[in-house]
C-alpha cells in the first residue's frame, strides 16, 4: 500500500465522513429505536418535538452536550476521562475497510477483516477502564461482566466469519462481496446458514444489546460500567454503542448478505438497507425478550455456539477441500 498524499487525504476525508456517519447513525437510531419501542408497546414514542418527534434525538444530544460534567469523588480521573474517548475512536477506524459500495471503500485493505476484529477488541478496554476508574461497585461488576462477555463472544464470531473466509479464500471484504451474487439465493447466508445464525447471536452478545445486555443490566446493576457517567461521557458511550451495532451489521451484510449487491441494481443503498434491517432486528429483540442470566450467557457461548461453530468450520473445510 503506497502512502502518497492522495491516499492520506482520502483517509482523512473518509474519517470525517465516518464520524458524520456515526453521529447521524446515532441520531437516527435513537429516534428509530424509541419509535420502535413505542409502537411495540402500543404508544407513539417521541411525538412532541418536531413533526412526529423527529427532532427529539437531536434535542436530547444537545442536552447531553450542554450538561455539566459531573465527576464523582475519588475517581481515577485520567482513566475516567480516557474511557469514553477510547470507546469512541477505535470504532472510527473500524469503518475504514468496510465496502459500502463497489468503489466506496475508505481504505481497501487486503486483510480488512483482521483489522476489524483486532480493533473491535479495543472497545472492551474502554468498558473496563470506565468501570474501574469510576469508583463504583456497580461499575466494577459491569466492567467485569463486559470483559468476560466480549472475550467469550468474539470467538464464535470469528469462527463463523472464518467459515465464509474459507469459502471465498480472501480476507479482503470487497473480494468477499464480489464472490456473492445479486440475488438472495446467491448470498453466503444460503451456503452458511449456521454460521449466519451463530454470527447473529454473537453480534447481539458482542454489542451488549438486550437480551445480552449484562454489562449494563439496569435491573441488576443500574447502568453497569457507565453508571457514573453523565453528559458528554455518557454520550460518547452511547455513540460508540450504536456505532458498534452499525459496524457489526455492516460486517454481517458483507459476509452473509451480499454487501452492496442486491436484486435489480447493485449499489451502496443495498448495504445500508440490509444493515439497517439487521439493526431493526436487534432493536426488535431488545423490546421482546427478558434478559438472560450471566452464567447462562456464558453457557450459551461456550457450550453451544463455540462447538457449533467449530463443527461448522470442520464441515466447511471438508466440503471446500473435496470440491
Amino acid at each position: 500500500m503506497d502512502l502518497s498524499i492522495t491516499s492520506l487525504a482520502q483517509i482523512i476525508i473518509a474519517c470525517l465522513m465516518v464520524i458524520g456517519l456515526m453521529v447521524a447513525n446515532a441520531v437516527v437510531m435513537v429516534y428509530f429505536e424509541r419509535k420502535t419501542a413505542g409502537f411495540i408497546q402500543r404508544r407513539p414514542g417521541p411525538y412532541e418535538v418536531g413533526p412526529r418527534g423527529t427532532i427529539q434525538a437531536i434535542c436530547d444530544s444537545m442536552k447531553l452536550l450542554g450538561k455539566q460534567l459531573f465527576i464523582p469523588g475519588n475517581v481515577d480521573w485520567l482513566l475516567y476521562f480516557l474511557a469514553p474517548v477510547l470507546a469512541f475512536f477505535p470504532v472510527l477506524l473500524l469503518f475504514l475497510p468496510i465496502p459500502f459500495g463497489k468503489f466506496l471503500t475508505a481504505m481497501s485493505v487486503d486483510e480488512g477483516i483482521l483489522l476489524i476484529l483486532a480493533f473491535s477488541g479495543l472497545g472492551v478496554i474502554s468498558n473496563i477502564l470506565a468501570g474501574w476508574s469510576s469508583n463504583n461497585k456497580y461499575g466494577l461488576l459491569g466492567a467485569a461482566r463486559a470483559v468476560s462477555q466480549s472475550i467469550a463472544y468474539e470467538i464464535p464470531m470469528i469462527m463463523s466469519l472464518l467459515a465464509v473466509i474459507f469459502l471465498s479464500g480472501s480476507l479482503n471484504l470487497s473480494q468477499i462481496v464480489e464472490e456473492q451474487g445479486s440475488w438472495p439465493w446467491q448470498w453466503n447466508i444460503c451456503v452458511q446458514p449456521l454460521a449466519f445464525f451463530i454470527y447473529l447471536v454473537s453480534l447481539v452478545g458482542e454489542t451488549n444489546r438486550a437480551p445480552f445486555d449484562l454489562p449494563e443490566a439496569e435491573s441488576e446493576l443500574t447502568a453497569g460500567f457507565h453508571t457514573e457517567y453523565s453528559g458528554m461521557g455518557f454520550a460518547l458511550f452511547f455513540l460508540s454503542e450504536y456505532a458498534n451495532m452499525l459496524l457489526v451489521s455492516f460486517v454481517c451484510v458483507t459476509f452473509f448478505l451480499g454487501g452492496w449487491k442486491g436484486p435489480f441494481l447493485d449499489g451502496f443503498w443495498w448495504t445500508f438497507i440490509k444493515a439497517y434491517l439487521i439493526m431493526m432486528f436487534i432493536v426488535w429483540l431488545r423490546w421482546t425478550f427478558p434478559r438472560v442470566r450471566f452464567d447462562q450467557l456464558l453457557n450459551i457461548n461456550w457450550k453451544w455456539l463455540l462447538p457449533l461453530s467449530i463443527l461448522n468450520l470442520w464441515i466447511t473445510a471438508i466440503v471446500v477441500k473435496l470440491l
Partner: peptide, 16 residues
Amino acid sequence: FVMDLGGVTPILYAFE
C-alpha cells in the same frame, strides 16, 4: 416482575 428480568415491553401490555 418481567421488567426486573429485563423484559421491558410486557409491563406496558399489563398496563393496558
